[in-house]
Design a protein around this nucleic acid. Sequence first.
DNA 1: TACTTTTGTATCGCAAACGATCTAAATAGA
DNA 2: TCTATTTAGATCGTTTGCGATACAAAAGTA
Lengths: 150, 150
Amino acid sequence: MKEQLKLDNQLCFRLYTASRLLTQAYHPLLSEHGLTYPQYLVLMVLWEKDAQPVNDIAKRLMLETNTVTPLLKRMELQGILTRSKGSADARQVIVTLTEKGQNLQNLLTDVPMKVGSAVICKSVNFDTFPALFGMLDDIIAKLDNQEKTA
Amino acid sequence: MKEQLKLDNQLCFRLYTASRLLTQAYHPLLSEHGLTYPQYLVLMVLWEKDAQPVNDIAKRLMLETNTVTPLLKRMELQGILTRSKGSADARQVIVTLTEKGQNLQNLLTDVPMKVGSAVICKSVNFDTFPALFGMLDDIIAKLDNQEKTA
DNA sequence: TACTTTTGTATCGCAAACGATCTAAATAGA
DNA sequence: TCTATTTAGATCGTTTGCGATACAAAAGTA
């Protein structure tokens, strides 16, 4: 058995599993408000800056527009946001939060803390977050550059 | 804007993005052999120990069987593995690699190194892997325990 | 033995992700 | 101006991931 092909030696499997399990931890807190995790990410983007074109939202989340479009449509159906043709550039679709979408920010205030407390442990805490965040950011930056170069 | 709801402060978004981008890095190397990333994970499980029931494979990957079953069926159609009723317990379906499935191990030997080289950087390398792996393993263990307790 | 519960797997439906492809609007060049 | 190219989104098809549910085999219990 080749050492480099063992599951326990894989960075990707760890990231994949940690990501799935952490997303699952959000599930009960978000589904309570009819939201999925990617929808919650969209909300965070729009809370920071409202009225953005689809492309800007996709870029911020590092997703493709063909992933974001159906997601936004579902959120529109739920009355969380509106999608309207851009006035400057008619190709753009500007996404704007409704009052319901803005109010969700208050309803979800405690979510990060609740989920955060589920992962805090000896090696992962406020002291070690900077190092962990730094490494993950470097991985993301490296892979993001690679695909742009390719 | 509440600080804890900013995208840049989220561990989960980083894990989610790093996982997606790293999985994408595998894509060209795997699709060459008609494989997807989760299928590659199944192969790693079976290379380590062949002839396992569906449940054991799912547990090893921390996935539900309803995710693994259709995945295995596709791999069966590709002639990578076979699924047969267990003799001891007739409820079990034993998954066994075909010769083609075993041979893939040789064809994919270089994949980990190729992908690995795409993420190596100042903060992420063989010296820092232990620390990073440790933190991710702790996050996974903590979340895994939580769901079992809940 | 008969009844109940648990376990192993499969089925169904929905929401991502993403590659490939299409349309329309905007822009660049001849 | 007229055509070629680029850009913004949308559409389509395939593969996950998972909750809910179904069902048969096995295990436990009365």
